[in-house]
Design a protein around this nucleic acid. Structure first.
Length: 492
DNA sequence: GGACAAAGGGAAGTAAACCG
DNA sequence: CGGTTTACTTCCCTTTGTCC
Protein backbone atom coordinates (compact mmCIF):
# COMPACT_ATOMS: atom_id res chain seq x y z
CA UNK A 1 0.00 0.00 0.00
CA UNK A 2 1.12 3.47 -0.64
CA UNK A 3 0.56 4.39 2.97
CA UNK A 4 2.82 1.66 4.05
CA UNK A 5 5.55 2.84 1.81
CA UNK A 6 5.27 6.20 3.45
CA UNK A 7 5.26 4.60 6.82
CA UNK A 8 8.62 3.11 6.26
CA UNK A 9 10.18 6.40 7.14
CA UNK A 10 7.75 7.11 9.92
CA UNK A 11 8.22 6.95 13.68
CA UNK A 12 7.54 3.69 15.53
CA UNK A 13 11.03 2.87 16.34
CA UNK A 14 12.26 -0.18 18.12
CA UNK A 15 9.34 -2.29 17.21
CA UNK A 16 9.63 -1.31 13.60
CA UNK A 17 13.29 -2.07 13.62
CA UNK A 18 12.52 -5.48 14.92
CA UNK A 19 9.79 -6.19 12.49
CA UNK A 20 11.71 -4.83 9.59
CA UNK A 21 14.40 -7.31 10.37
CA UNK A 22 11.95 -10.06 9.65
CA UNK A 23 10.05 -8.05 7.15
CA UNK A 24 11.99 -8.68 3.95
CA UNK A 25 9.79 -10.69 1.72
CA UNK A 26 10.94 -14.18 2.25
CA UNK A 27 11.02 -16.64 -0.55
CA UNK A 28 8.31 -18.57 1.17
CA UNK A 29 6.22 -15.48 1.51
CA UNK A 30 6.66 -14.65 -2.11
CA UNK A 31 5.86 -18.14 -3.15
CA UNK A 32 2.77 -18.17 -1.02
CA UNK A 33 1.69 -14.79 -2.16
CA UNK A 34 1.82 -15.86 -5.72
CA UNK A 35 -1.48 -17.54 -5.26
CA UNK A 36 -4.33 -15.31 -4.44
CA UNK A 37 -2.88 -12.52 -2.36
CA UNK A 38 -3.50 -8.98 -3.24
CA UNK A 39 -6.50 -7.07 -4.23
CA UNK A 40 -9.44 -9.19 -5.11
CA UNK A 41 -10.67 -8.99 -8.65
CA UNK A 42 -13.76 -6.88 -9.01
CA UNK A 43 -13.30 -5.01 -5.77
CA UNK A 44 -14.37 -1.41 -6.13
CA UNK A 45 -12.87 1.65 -4.59
CA UNK A 46 -14.80 3.19 -1.75
CA UNK A 47 -17.29 5.72 -2.91
CA UNK A 48 -18.14 8.84 -1.00
CA UNK A 49 -21.37 7.39 0.29
CA UNK A 50 -19.64 4.21 1.41
CA UNK A 51 -17.11 6.21 3.35
CA UNK A 52 -19.83 8.32 4.86
CA UNK A 53 -21.68 5.25 5.97
CA UNK A 54 -18.52 3.74 7.40
CA UNK A 55 -17.75 6.85 9.39
CA UNK A 56 -21.31 7.13 10.61
CA UNK A 57 -21.28 3.56 11.80
CA UNK A 58 -17.97 4.07 13.51
CA UNK A 59 -19.42 7.07 15.22
CA UNK A 60 -22.46 5.13 16.27
CA UNK A 61 -20.80 1.93 17.44
CA UNK A 62 -17.68 3.60 18.76
CA UNK A 63 -15.47 0.58 18.24
CA UNK A 64 -12.48 0.24 20.48
CA UNK A 65 -11.33 -3.28 19.80
CA UNK A 66 -11.89 -5.72 17.00
CA UNK A 67 -15.11 -6.71 18.73
CA UNK A 68 -16.46 -3.31 18.02
CA UNK A 69 -15.13 -3.34 14.52
CA UNK A 70 -16.81 -6.61 13.83
CA UNK A 71 -20.07 -4.93 14.78
CA UNK A 72 -19.30 -2.08 12.45
CA UNK A 73 -18.47 -4.66 9.84
CA UNK A 74 -21.78 -6.43 10.27
CA UNK A 75 -23.79 -3.26 10.15
CA UNK A 76 -21.83 -1.95 7.23
CA UNK A 77 -22.26 -5.06 5.14
CA UNK A 78 -25.95 -5.14 5.93
CA UNK A 79 -26.20 -1.61 4.67
CA UNK A 80 -24.00 -2.34 1.65
CA UNK A 81 -26.12 -5.27 0.69
CA UNK A 82 -29.27 -3.23 0.88
CA UNK A 83 -27.76 -0.49 -1.20
CA UNK A 84 -25.90 -2.57 -3.76
CA UNK A 85 -22.43 -1.72 -2.59
CA UNK A 86 -19.50 -4.09 -2.27
CA UNK A 87 -19.28 -6.11 0.89
CA UNK A 88 -16.08 -5.52 2.83
CA UNK A 89 -14.04 -7.35 5.36
CA UNK A 90 -13.32 -6.15 8.88
CA UNK A 91 -9.70 -5.37 8.42
CA UNK A 92 -10.05 -3.34 5.25
CA UNK A 93 -12.94 -1.44 6.81
CA UNK A 94 -10.90 -0.53 9.82
CA UNK A 95 -7.94 0.36 7.65
CA UNK A 96 -10.13 2.58 5.50
CA UNK A 97 -11.59 4.31 8.51
CA UNK A 98 -8.12 4.90 9.88
CA UNK A 99 -7.14 6.42 6.60
CA UNK A 100 -10.13 8.73 6.50
CA UNK A 101 -9.42 9.82 10.01
CA UNK A 102 -5.77 10.36 9.21
CA UNK A 103 -6.71 12.45 6.21
CA UNK A 104 -9.13 14.40 8.35
CA UNK A 105 -6.37 15.22 10.79
CA UNK A 106 -4.22 16.49 7.97
CA UNK A 107 -7.10 18.54 6.69
CA UNK A 108 -7.64 19.87 10.16
CA UNK A 109 -4.27 21.56 10.13
CA UNK A 110 -4.43 22.74 6.56
CA UNK A 111 -6.34 25.51 4.95
CA UNK A 112 -9.60 25.23 3.14
CA UNK A 113 -13.00 23.99 4.00
CA UNK A 114 -13.45 20.81 6.00
CA UNK A 115 -15.44 18.32 3.96
CA UNK A 116 -18.39 16.70 5.64
CA UNK A 117 -16.72 13.32 5.57
CA UNK A 118 -13.70 14.53 7.47
CA UNK A 119 -15.82 16.42 9.91
CA UNK A 120 -17.77 13.27 10.63
CA UNK A 121 -14.57 11.28 10.91
CA UNK A 122 -13.22 13.61 13.52
CA UNK A 123 -16.53 13.53 15.27
CA UNK A 124 -16.51 9.75 15.20
CA UNK A 125 -13.03 9.62 16.61
CA UNK A 126 -14.06 11.96 19.36
CA UNK A 127 -16.98 9.70 20.13
CA UNK A 128 -14.67 6.73 20.20
CA UNK A 129 -12.33 8.50 22.51
CA UNK A 130 -15.28 9.27 24.72
CA UNK A 131 -14.93 12.97 24.35
CA UNK A 132 -17.79 15.35 24.44
CA UNK A 133 -18.38 17.65 21.59
CA UNK A 134 -19.09 20.79 23.50
CA UNK A 135 -17.49 24.00 22.44
CA UNK A 136 -14.20 24.89 24.00
CA UNK A 137 -14.53 27.10 27.00
CA UNK A 138 -13.37 30.43 25.73
CA UNK A 139 -11.86 32.51 28.46
CA UNK A 140 -9.99 34.85 26.20
CA UNK A 141 -10.91 38.51 26.05
CA UNK A 142 -13.03 39.78 23.26
CA UNK A 143 -10.99 41.08 20.37
CA UNK A 144 -13.01 44.23 20.00
CA UNK A 145 -12.64 45.23 23.58
CA UNK A 146 -10.94 48.59 23.73
CA UNK A 147 -7.61 48.83 25.48
CA UNK A 148 -8.65 51.76 27.63
CA UNK A 149 -11.83 50.19 28.75
CA UNK A 150 -13.42 51.84 31.71
CA UNK A 151 -13.75 49.88 34.83
CA UNK A 152 -16.90 47.94 34.35
CA UNK A 153 -18.24 45.49 36.76
CA UNK A 154 -19.36 42.65 34.62
CA UNK A 155 -20.33 39.10 35.28
CA UNK A 156 -18.49 37.10 32.68
CA UNK A 157 -20.26 33.94 31.90
CA UNK A 158 -18.23 31.69 29.69
CA UNK A 159 -19.98 28.57 28.51
CA UNK A 160 -22.71 28.49 31.04
CA UNK A 161 -20.67 28.78 34.17
CA UNK A 162 -23.05 31.35 35.60
CA UNK A 163 -24.05 29.43 38.64
CA UNK A 164 -20.45 28.77 39.59
CA UNK A 165 -19.46 32.38 39.66
CA UNK A 166 -19.48 33.45 43.23
CA UNK A 167 -17.22 36.45 43.42
CA UNK A 168 -17.13 39.41 41.12
CA UNK A 169 -14.41 41.87 41.79
CA UNK A 170 -12.60 44.76 40.24
CA UNK A 171 -8.90 44.61 39.76
CA UNK A 172 -6.32 47.04 38.55
CA UNK A 173 -3.64 44.48 38.03
CA UNK A 174 -1.50 46.00 35.32
CA UNK A 175 -0.18 42.67 34.14
CA UNK A 176 -3.61 41.58 33.25
CA UNK A 177 -4.73 44.84 31.77
CA UNK A 178 -7.74 44.55 29.64
CA UNK A 179 -8.10 40.84 30.10
CA UNK A 180 -10.60 38.82 31.96
CA UNK A 181 -9.61 35.70 33.77
CA UNK A 182 -11.62 32.91 35.21
CA UNK A 183 -9.88 31.59 38.26
CA UNK A 184 -10.89 28.41 39.90
CA UNK A 185 -11.18 28.72 43.59
CA UNK A 186 -10.53 26.12 46.17
CA UNK A 187 -14.15 25.21 46.66
CA UNK A 188 -14.57 24.59 42.99
CA UNK A 189 -16.32 27.82 42.28
CA UNK A 190 -15.14 30.51 39.94
CA UNK A 191 -14.19 34.08 40.40
CA UNK A 192 -14.13 36.49 37.52
CA UNK A 193 -11.46 39.09 37.65
CA UNK A 194 -11.79 41.95 35.23
CA UNK A 195 -8.78 44.15 34.81
CA UNK A 196 -8.86 47.65 33.43
CA UNK A 197 -6.49 50.40 32.48
CA UNK A 198 -6.12 53.31 34.80
CA UNK A 199 -2.64 54.75 34.80
CA UNK A 200 -2.60 56.12 38.33
CA UNK A 201 -4.43 53.25 39.77
CA UNK A 202 -2.11 50.78 38.17
CA UNK A 203 0.89 51.80 40.21
CA UNK A 204 1.22 51.25 43.90
CA UNK A 205 0.44 54.38 45.93
CA UNK A 206 3.61 56.25 46.72
CA UNK A 207 3.97 58.91 49.28
CA UNK A 208 3.41 62.08 47.22
CA UNK A 209 5.92 64.86 47.24
CA UNK A 210 4.69 68.23 48.41
CA UNK A 211 4.99 69.78 44.97
CA UNK A 212 3.07 67.08 43.39
CA UNK A 213 0.46 66.91 46.07
CA UNK A 214 -1.95 69.28 44.35
CA UNK A 215 -1.87 67.66 40.94
CA UNK A 216 -1.81 64.27 42.51
CA UNK A 217 -4.82 65.18 44.55
CA UNK A 218 -6.58 66.43 41.46
CA UNK A 219 -5.61 63.34 39.64
CA UNK A 220 -6.81 61.23 42.53
CA UNK A 221 -10.08 63.05 42.61
CA UNK A 222 -10.49 62.58 38.92
CA UNK A 223 -9.74 58.89 39.22
CA UNK A 224 -12.13 58.59 42.08
CA UNK A 225 -14.77 60.44 40.12
CA UNK A 226 -14.10 58.32 37.11
CA UNK A 227 -14.39 55.17 39.15
CA UNK A 228 -17.49 56.39 40.88
CA UNK A 229 -19.02 57.31 37.55
CA UNK A 230 -18.23 53.91 36.17
CA UNK A 231 -19.60 52.22 39.23
CA UNK A 232 -22.72 54.31 39.01
CA UNK A 233 -23.10 53.43 35.39
CA UNK A 234 -22.48 49.80 36.08
CA UNK A 235 -24.89 49.68 38.95
CA UNK A 236 -27.61 51.70 37.25
CA UNK A 237 -30.99 49.99 36.81
CA UNK A 238 -30.57 50.04 33.03
CA UNK A 239 -27.22 48.29 33.21
CA UNK A 240 -28.61 45.92 35.75
CA UNK A 241 -31.48 45.10 33.50
CA UNK A 242 -29.11 44.58 30.61
CA UNK A 243 -27.00 42.23 32.65
CA UNK A 244 -30.06 40.33 33.75
CA UNK A 245 -31.11 39.93 30.16
CA UNK A 246 -27.65 38.73 29.20
CA UNK A 247 -27.59 36.39 32.14
CA UNK A 248 -30.96 35.03 31.20
CA UNK A 249 -29.78 34.42 27.66
CA UNK A 250 -26.70 32.69 28.94
CA UNK A 251 -28.68 30.51 31.27
CA UNK A 252 -31.05 29.66 28.48
CA UNK A 253 -28.19 28.68 26.23
CA UNK A 254 -26.56 26.69 28.99
CA UNK A 255 -29.81 24.87 29.59
CA UNK A 256 -30.15 24.04 25.95
CA UNK A 257 -26.59 22.80 25.81
CA UNK A 258 -27.16 20.63 28.83
CA UNK A 259 -30.33 19.22 27.33
CA UNK A 260 -28.59 18.48 24.04
CA UNK A 261 -25.74 16.86 25.86
CA UNK A 262 -28.14 14.68 27.76
CA UNK A 263 -29.99 13.77 24.60
CA UNK A 264 -26.75 12.93 22.88
CA UNK A 265 -25.73 10.69 25.71
CA UNK A 266 -29.12 9.02 25.75
CA UNK A 267 -28.99 8.33 22.03
CA UNK A 268 -25.52 6.90 22.34
CA UNK A 269 -26.68 4.58 25.10
CA UNK A 270 -29.69 3.46 23.15
CA UNK A 271 -27.59 2.84 20.11
CA UNK A 272 -25.14 0.86 22.13
CA UNK A 273 -27.91 -1.25 23.62
CA UNK A 274 -29.26 -2.09 20.21
CA UNK A 275 -25.86 -3.11 18.96
CA UNK A 276 -25.53 -5.33 22.02
CA UNK A 277 -28.83 -6.99 21.27
CA UNK A 278 -27.83 -7.62 17.68
CA UNK A 279 -24.56 -9.07 18.82
CA UNK A 280 -26.30 -11.34 21.32
CA UNK A 281 -28.76 -12.60 18.77
CA UNK A 282 -26.07 -13.29 16.24
CA UNK A 283 -24.07 -15.17 18.80
CA UNK A 284 -27.08 -17.29 19.62
CA UNK A 285 -27.61 -17.92 15.96
CA UNK A 286 -24.01 -19.02 15.59
CA UNK A 287 -24.28 -21.40 18.51
CA UNK A 288 -27.42 -22.91 17.11
CA UNK A 289 -25.78 -23.21 13.75
CA UNK A 290 -22.92 -25.12 15.28
CA UNK A 291 -25.31 -27.36 17.13
CA UNK A 292 -26.99 -28.09 13.89
CA UNK A 293 -23.68 -29.00 12.31
CA UNK A 294 -23.13 -31.51 15.03
CA UNK A 295 -26.56 -32.94 14.74
CA UNK A 296 -26.11 -33.40 11.06
CA UNK A 297 -22.76 -35.05 11.58
CA UNK A 298 -24.40 -37.68 13.75
CA UNK A 299 -23.70 -36.37 17.24
CA UNK A 300 -26.11 -35.62 19.99
CA UNK A 301 -26.52 -32.15 21.22
CA UNK A 302 -28.39 -31.22 24.30
CA UNK A 303 -28.72 -28.38 26.65
CA UNK A 304 -26.73 -29.40 29.66
CA UNK A 305 -27.01 -26.65 32.18
CA UNK A 306 -28.35 -29.18 34.64
CA UNK A 307 -25.38 -31.50 34.47
CA UNK A 308 -22.53 -29.32 35.40
CA UNK A 309 -23.25 -27.53 38.58
CA UNK A 310 -20.95 -29.50 40.84
CA UNK A 311 -17.57 -28.67 39.43
CA UNK A 312 -16.08 -25.28 40.12
CA UNK A 313 -15.84 -23.17 37.03
CA UNK A 314 -13.54 -20.43 35.94
CA UNK A 315 -13.67 -17.10 37.64
CA UNK A 316 -16.17 -14.52 36.54
CA UNK A 317 -13.43 -12.60 34.84
CA UNK A 318 -12.21 -15.65 33.01
CA UNK A 319 -15.69 -16.56 32.03
CA UNK A 320 -16.37 -13.15 30.64
CA UNK A 321 -13.20 -13.18 28.68
CA UNK A 322 -13.82 -16.69 27.54
CA UNK A 323 -17.27 -15.86 26.34
CA UNK A 324 -15.94 -12.89 24.49
CA UNK A 325 -13.26 -14.94 22.87
CA UNK A 326 -15.52 -17.71 21.80
CA UNK A 327 -18.02 -15.23 20.46
CA UNK A 328 -15.41 -13.71 18.27
CA UNK A 329 -13.93 -16.87 17.04
CA UNK A 330 -14.39 -17.59 13.39
CA UNK A 331 -14.62 -21.19 12.55
CA UNK A 332 -13.93 -23.11 9.40
CA UNK A 333 -14.80 -26.76 9.64
CA UNK A 334 -13.40 -29.61 7.69
CA UNK A 335 -16.08 -31.47 5.87
CA UNK A 336 -15.21 -35.12 5.46
CA UNK A 337 -17.97 -35.62 2.96
CA UNK A 338 -16.96 -32.93 0.54
CA UNK A 339 -13.30 -33.23 1.45
CA UNK A 340 -13.11 -29.51 1.70
CA UNK A 341 -13.22 -26.69 4.22
CA UNK A 342 -16.66 -25.58 5.04
CA UNK A 343 -17.94 -22.43 6.62
CA UNK A 344 -20.62 -22.78 9.26
CA UNK A 345 -24.00 -22.47 7.66
CA UNK A 346 -27.20 -21.15 9.01
CA UNK A 347 -29.83 -23.53 10.24
CA UNK A 348 -33.28 -23.45 8.75
CA UNK A 349 -35.14 -24.14 11.89
CA UNK A 350 -32.84 -25.15 14.65
CA UNK A 351 -35.27 -25.93 17.40
CA UNK A 352 -37.18 -28.22 15.14
CA UNK A 353 -34.09 -29.95 13.89
CA UNK A 354 -32.74 -30.45 17.35
CA UNK A 355 -35.95 -31.84 18.78
CA UNK A 356 -35.53 -35.41 17.52
CA UNK A 357 -32.00 -35.49 18.87
CA UNK A 358 -33.17 -34.36 22.24
CA UNK A 359 -35.90 -36.94 22.25
CA UNK A 360 -33.48 -39.61 21.27
CA UNK A 361 -31.19 -38.67 24.07
CA UNK A 362 -33.97 -38.62 26.63
CA UNK A 363 -35.01 -42.06 25.59
CA UNK A 364 -31.67 -43.48 26.37
CA UNK A 365 -31.10 -44.70 29.86
CA UNK A 366 -27.94 -42.82 30.49
CA UNK A 367 -27.43 -42.00 34.08
CA UNK A 368 -26.90 -38.47 35.15
CA UNK A 369 -23.67 -39.40 36.82
CA UNK A 370 -22.29 -40.97 33.71
CA UNK A 371 -23.11 -37.94 31.66
CA UNK A 372 -21.49 -35.65 34.11
CA UNK A 373 -18.39 -37.77 34.37
CA UNK A 374 -18.06 -38.00 30.63
CA UNK A 375 -18.58 -34.36 30.12
CA UNK A 376 -16.19 -33.26 32.79
CA UNK A 377 -13.62 -35.70 31.57
CA UNK A 378 -14.05 -34.47 28.12
CA UNK A 379 -13.95 -30.80 28.76
CA UNK A 380 -12.10 -30.60 32.00
CA UNK A 381 -14.35 -27.90 33.33
CA UNK A 382 -17.97 -27.01 33.25
CA UNK A 383 -19.61 -24.74 30.82
CA UNK A 384 -23.18 -23.95 30.26
CA UNK A 385 -24.31 -24.27 26.74
CA UNK A 386 -23.99 -26.10 24.49
CA UNK A 387 -22.35 -29.40 25.38
CA UNK A 388 -21.64 -32.31 23.16
CA UNK A 389 -22.02 -35.79 24.42
CA UNK A 390 -20.42 -38.54 22.43
CA UNK A 391 -20.96 -42.22 22.49
CA UNK A 392 -18.88 -44.00 23.40
CA UNK A 393 -17.69 -41.54 25.97
CA UNK A 394 -14.61 -39.67 24.91
CA UNK A 395 -11.42 -40.45 26.75
CA UNK A 396 -10.06 -38.05 29.30
CA UNK A 397 -8.69 -35.21 27.32
CA UNK A 398 -7.53 -31.82 28.37
CA UNK A 399 -5.56 -28.87 27.16
CA UNK A 400 -2.26 -30.42 27.88
CA UNK A 401 -3.02 -33.46 25.88
CA UNK A 402 -2.05 -31.44 22.94
CA UNK A 403 -0.19 -33.39 20.37
CA UNK A 404 2.33 -30.66 20.19
CA UNK A 405 2.95 -30.72 23.91
CA UNK A 406 2.55 -34.03 25.61
CA UNK A 407 1.70 -37.59 24.92
CA UNK A 408 -1.60 -38.19 23.32
CA UNK A 409 -2.66 -41.48 21.86
CA UNK A 410 -3.17 -40.63 18.20
CA UNK A 411 -5.71 -43.35 17.69
CA UNK A 412 -7.99 -41.80 20.24
CA UNK A 413 -7.72 -38.47 18.64
CA UNK A 414 -8.56 -39.69 15.22
CA UNK A 415 -11.40 -41.69 16.65
CA UNK A 416 -12.99 -39.06 18.77
CA UNK A 417 -12.00 -35.76 17.32
CA UNK A 418 -12.38 -34.89 13.72
CA UNK A 419 -9.64 -32.48 12.87
CA UNK A 420 -10.43 -29.31 11.11
CA UNK A 421 -8.46 -26.31 10.11
CA UNK A 422 -9.07 -22.91 11.45
CA UNK A 423 -7.38 -19.62 11.09
CA UNK A 424 -6.33 -18.08 14.32
CA UNK A 425 -9.02 -15.48 14.46
CA UNK A 426 -10.78 -12.89 12.41
CA UNK A 427 -8.47 -10.14 13.42
CA UNK A 428 -5.90 -10.78 10.78
CA UNK A 429 -3.59 -13.05 12.63
CA UNK A 430 -1.90 -15.52 10.45
CA UNK A 431 -1.52 -18.60 12.58
CA UNK A 432 -3.15 -21.66 11.20
CA UNK A 433 -3.77 -24.65 13.35
CA UNK A 434 -5.28 -28.04 13.33
CA UNK A 435 -7.92 -28.38 15.91
CA UNK A 436 -10.08 -31.10 17.18
CA UNK A 437 -13.63 -31.07 15.95
CA UNK A 438 -14.85 -30.21 19.41
CA UNK A 439 -13.39 -26.82 19.06
CA UNK A 440 -16.20 -25.89 16.75
CA UNK A 441 -18.39 -25.49 19.78
CA UNK A 442 -17.99 -22.30 21.74
CA UNK A 443 -16.74 -23.12 25.18
CA UNK A 444 -17.23 -20.96 28.17
CA UNK A 445 -13.61 -21.15 29.10
CA UNK A 446 -12.84 -19.53 25.80
CA UNK A 447 -9.76 -21.55 25.13
CA UNK A 448 -11.70 -24.30 23.57
CA UNK A 449 -10.90 -27.74 24.68
CA UNK A 450 -8.87 -30.01 22.52
CA UNK A 451 -7.37 -27.32 20.41
CA UNK A 452 -4.31 -27.24 18.30
CA UNK A 453 -2.92 -30.52 17.34
CA UNK A 454 -0.14 -28.67 15.66
CA UNK A 455 0.53 -25.29 14.21
CA UNK A 456 1.79 -24.92 10.76
CA UNK A 457 4.83 -22.81 10.56
CA UNK A 458 3.96 -19.65 8.69
CA UNK A 459 6.14 -20.46 5.72
CA UNK A 460 4.23 -23.57 4.95
CA UNK A 461 1.33 -23.26 2.67
CA UNK A 462 -1.68 -25.45 2.93
CA UNK A 463 -0.41 -27.42 0.00
CA UNK A 464 2.26 -28.85 2.24
CA UNK A 465 -0.27 -30.06 4.72
CA UNK A 466 -0.01 -33.81 5.11
CA UNK A 467 -3.19 -35.85 5.27
CA UNK A 468 -4.97 -35.00 8.46
CA UNK A 469 -5.07 -38.52 9.72
CA UNK A 470 -1.36 -38.75 9.30
CA UNK A 471 -0.94 -35.58 11.22
CA UNK A 472 -2.78 -36.95 14.14
CA UNK A 473 -1.01 -40.24 14.05
CA UNK A 474 2.43 -38.82 13.71
CA UNK A 475 4.44 -38.44 16.90
CA UNK A 476 5.15 -34.83 17.56
CA UNK A 477 8.86 -35.03 16.98
CA UNK A 478 8.35 -36.53 13.58
CA UNK A 479 6.01 -33.83 12.43
CA UNK A 480 7.26 -32.04 9.40
CA UNK A 481 6.87 -28.65 11.04
CA UNK A 482 8.32 -29.41 14.43
CA UNK A 483 6.85 -29.35 17.86
CA UNK A 484 3.97 -27.11 16.98
CA UNK A 485 4.34 -24.90 19.97
CA UNK A 486 4.33 -21.21 19.31
CA UNK A 487 7.33 -19.21 20.27
CA UNK A 488 6.36 -16.71 22.88
CA UNK A 489 7.65 -13.58 21.35
CA UNK A 490 11.04 -14.01 22.88
CA UNK A 491 10.69 -11.00 25.09
CA UNK A 492 8.69 -12.12 28.03
C1' DG B 1 1.77 3.31 -17.84
C1' DG B 2 2.19 5.00 -13.36
C1' DA B 3 0.14 6.16 -9.05
C1' DC B 4 -2.84 4.83 -5.89
C1' DA B 5 -6.13 1.76 -3.51
C1' DA B 6 -7.64 -2.54 -1.65
C1' DA B 7 -6.85 -6.71 0.25
C1' DG B 8 -4.26 -10.81 2.00
C1' DG B 9 -0.91 -12.36 4.80
C1' DG B 10 3.69 -12.81 7.70
C1' DA B 11 6.17 -11.52 11.77
C1' DA B 12 6.50 -9.86 16.17
C1' DG B 13 4.83 -8.25 20.52
C1' DT B 14 1.68 -8.32 24.45
C1' DA B 15 -1.96 -9.41 27.80
C1' DA B 16 -4.28 -12.75 29.96
C1' DA B 17 -5.88 -17.41 31.05
C1' DC B 18 -4.72 -21.85 32.30
C1' DC B 19 -2.20 -25.61 34.45
C1' DG B 20 1.09 -28.20 37.24
C1' DC C 1 4.62 -18.86 40.59
C1' DG C 2 6.49 -19.88 36.25
C1' DG C 3 5.79 -21.93 31.90
C1' DT C 4 2.60 -22.58 28.21
C1' DT C 5 -0.90 -21.27 25.19
C1' DT C 6 -4.26 -18.38 23.01
C1' DA C 7 -6.24 -14.18 21.43
C1' DC C 8 -5.45 -9.92 19.80
C1' DT C 9 -3.00 -6.08 17.77
C1' DT C 10 0.24 -3.53 14.99
C1' DC C 11 3.50 -2.98 11.48
C1' DC C 12 4.99 -4.11 7.21
C1' DC C 13 5.12 -6.25 2.73
C1' DT C 14 3.30 -8.05 -1.63
C1' DT C 15 0.00 -8.61 -5.13
C1' DT C 16 -3.39 -7.05 -7.98
C1' DG C 17 -7.16 -4.03 -9.42
C1' DT C 18 -8.68 0.68 -10.45
C1' DC C 19 -8.25 5.23 -11.92
C1' DC C 20 -6.32 9.14 -14.26
Amino acid sequence: MADNKENTSGPSTAKRAKTSKAAPPSAASKKASGSGHGRVAGSQNYSESELMQLVKLARSVRPISMTGWSKVHQLYNAWAEDNNFSLRDVKPLKARYDKVHGDALVKLTGAGEMPELYRLALDAEDAIQGRTHMGVLDDEPADNEPADVKPVIKAENPAGLQKHISVISISSDDDESGSAKVKKERDGQYMVVKAYHSGAASTPPKKPSSSAKASSARSGVQDTRSLALSLTTALSPAAHEQRDAARFQSQLAAGEIAALREENSRLHDRDHERVEVISRLERDKEILSMQLDFVKSGHNVFDSNMHLSSTPGPSGHDQARGRRKSMERAEIAWDNDTDDWQMPHEPDDVSELLAPERDMFEDRSIKQEQIETDTVNAYDRPFANPVVHREPSPPAYNHHDRIGATVHPPELVTQHATPFLRTDNVAGSSKIGLYSRKQTLPMQDGRGFGEAAAFLTPSRSLNNLPPLTNVFKTPVNDMPWGSGTQAQGGSQ
